[in-house]
């Protein structure tokens, strides 16, 4: 990556308050970060420290109470609803702890969906969805519906769905939280593979093992960054 490329993510003084008055919860209390294209970042912290809240803001699913957010020099606050959906579609891939595949819809169709929203033609969509499924080792499971797949397989389908658009960044919120060690290993390998192809990977985790796989670790406590370490893999 070029030194002069804009950071894929730049946030400044982000706060997020849920509720009002007495019951207000300050989930984020002034978070500033820059994440360059191609980084592999783990976000850690105790339960309730604001990890998911931060991730939702980074993924343009939620808006901060205060602070600024640029994706590749685009000020997110300036984007309208339609433009935000384009950003989510073109730049961001999501992997959730609970997989979040669309029920009663085959694995292949799930993976095709982000391409459909981009307006990619049917034949192209099929080709790329199959390639994505093959890259997560599920080339033969395209016709299966989520309820016919194991947890680990479902998460791999979700990863295929996140990477099929070649997004600038993949956001994963505890992607291995519901999986055993074997599946965890497979998912980590896949995240590495995505990272190696050039996407920025940001993963929330409680597990040291997952964090060790990354090259930068950001620790949150009570809605603030308390540690930000980079290392060479």
């Amino acid at each position: 990556m070029s030194q002069f490329a804009p950071p894929v993510v730049k946030i400044e003084g982000i706060t997020k308050v849920f509720g009002q008055g007495e019951t207000a919860v300050h989930a984020l209390r002034g978070v500033s970060l820059e994440i360059e294209q191609g980084e592999f970042v783990a976000i850690m912290g105790a339960s309730g420290s604001g990890k998911t809240t931060l991730m939702n803001i980074l993924g343009c699913l939620d808006i901060p109470t205060e602070g600024d957010y640029w994706i590749r020099n685009l000020n997110v606050a300036d984007l309208d609803e339609e433009q935000l959906s384009v950003v989510r579609s073109q730049l961001i891939g999501f992997v959730f702890q609970s997989f979040n595949l669309i029920p009663r819809t085959s694995a292949a169709q799930n993976v095709e969906l982000p391409l459909a929203y981009q307006g990619v033609s049917l034949s192209e969509r099929r080709k790329r969805a199959l390639a994505a499924l093959e890259s997560v080792g599920l080339g033969d499971r395209g016709r299966h519906e989520p309820q016919e797949l194991s947890g680990g397989q479902q998460q791999r389908v979700a990863i295929a769905r996140a990477l099929v658009t070649n997004p600038a960044m993949v956001l994963a919120d505890e992607p291995t939280g519901a999986l055993d060690t074997q599946s965890t290993k497979e998912i980590l390998e896949l995240l590495h593979k995505i990272n190696a192809m050039g996407s920025t990977v940001i993963v929330i985790t409680h597990e040291e093992e997952v964090a060790r796989a990354a090259r930068r670790m950001i620790r949150l406590r009570d809605g603030q960054v308390v540690e930000d370490t980079k290392w060479v893999a």
């Binding site: 993924g59 609803e81 999501f94 979040n100 981009q118 769905r161």
Partner: peptide
């Protein structure tokens, strides 16, 4: 509702 959320997260525009 949840499915709508997933679809929006993976890039569905309002019109879709």
């Amino acid at each position: 509702t949840r499915e709508i959320g997933i679809r929006k997260a993976i890039g569905a525009p309002k019109s879709a």
